[in-house]
Design a protein around this nucleic acid. Sequence first.
DNA 1: CTAGGATCCTGTCAGC
DNA 2: TGCTGACAGGATCCTA
Length: 282
Amino acid sequence: MPELPEVETIRRGLEKLILHKKIKNVVILCEKSFRGDPKWVVGQKMDRLDRRGKALLIQLSNKMWMMAHLRMTGQMIFEGGEKFAAGHPDGGFTEKMPGRHTRVYFDFEDGTHLYFNDQRKFGFIAVLDELGLAEDSFLKKLAPEPWDMKSEDFWGMLQRHKSAPIKAVILDQSNIAGVGNIYADEGCFYAGILPWRRCGDLEREESDLLLKGLCEVMQAAIDSGGSTMKDYVRADGTKGSYLEKFAQVFRRDGLECRRCGGMIEKTRVAGRGTHYCRGCQK
DNA sequence: CTAGGATCCTGTCAGC
DNA sequence: TGCTGACAGGATCCTA
């Protein structure tokens, strides 16, 4: 899905647009994209927006929660006086809603709408009560947010996965929350670490630098409104600017490294496309 | 317990 | 043009 910075961008954008709006109706176009009973949300207001890792959490006035996982291709689109689309781009901003990838949408009492689009159907919205949220298997094993992690805890975590490639470990949400394929590559570049190195091979200093890199790179992405791909648009419809402005390696294979001038290369680590600079990363 | 691979689904693109 | 395989900003399930 969009990674932590993109979900945070969605949270901030939607907070301004849907807070305290009353849901008049829910339309489910794809059964597997919505878990729970629509009756639990109809007539409720959206009172609060939170985020944990890559999960978006919306609290309703009856104290139930809607948890949205955007996974690979999910996006949220608000249509009202203004339009806001964020997540996976896929024509969300320009296409007439509901579109061919709309899976669920909400009509608000004031005539505005919120659409959940998801091309690959990996994502979903789940309606849960307080207990269900507390017992959710994903949230339960989700590690702390990067900035809430102490460097010694991060180091200790790496020691528990000595033989695994560093990238596989930081992508695992039970080790650190919110890191996805872009920021894993960017964080490794920041720390000067080749992503396939085994955790047990890292020095303590490299571990500290990697945690710092993940925090800085994701904070910078939030500050600039989330990264963008050909189909990523942020909540108010303007394009995010992280990738074009700040990405050092992600999807830059074949291009010159901005730091050393060498060529960025691409390989496969932990089953994912992985970008790195031979000159800058050891 | 860990690590690695297949899998869920739709769409696009490169190469024949 | 039409087909085929690879790949895609994620997470889970199964296997060794």
